[in-house]
Amino acid sequence: MTEDEVLQILNLIEKSSFDFLQLELGDLKLMVSKSGYIPGTAAGSGIAAAPVARPVMSSTAETKEPVAQAKPARAEAKPIDTGVVEGAVAITAPMVGTFYTAPEPGAAPFVQLGGRVDEDATVGLIEVMKVFNAVKSGAPGVIAKICVENGQFVEYGQTLFLVRPEVVLDNEDPPE
């Protein structure tokens, strides 16, 4: 299942009158809950073994807001298309446009293979109608792969770099 499909499912559930969805396709399990309701061990082994992120949305419980007003679901899981680099996360293009690896022609590139980046590091620029937009790393780590060339046209969501994350930071939520 792709990230797109998960997003579509989340959107469908959000607009529906259902509170809870459990989907099993082969060894993939997806559970979505609008109220935080998770049916314990009802479906057997279930939850702990689920290999995908489990987006549990908690709507602001006792308010009288209609269900459809609940905050939109967002799949936080970014590590798709990690290619051959194991454990790496992708830095993807935030918009469609022309990608530049350096601040100006002839200048040194923002990042190099094996280089260390922190979360706010600029890794490149995307030009759209003469406006240059900085692309941020979004994740601290080491550049494990450069997937695009200078001056290349990139689509929205296209993988630009793979970053091997550094050891877990103390402000990060432990994986479930």
Partner: peptide
């Protein structure tokens, strides 16, 4: 985005 996609 439309213009960028067309040019690109």
């Amino acid at each position: 985005s439309i213009i960028a996609a067309a040019l690109g």
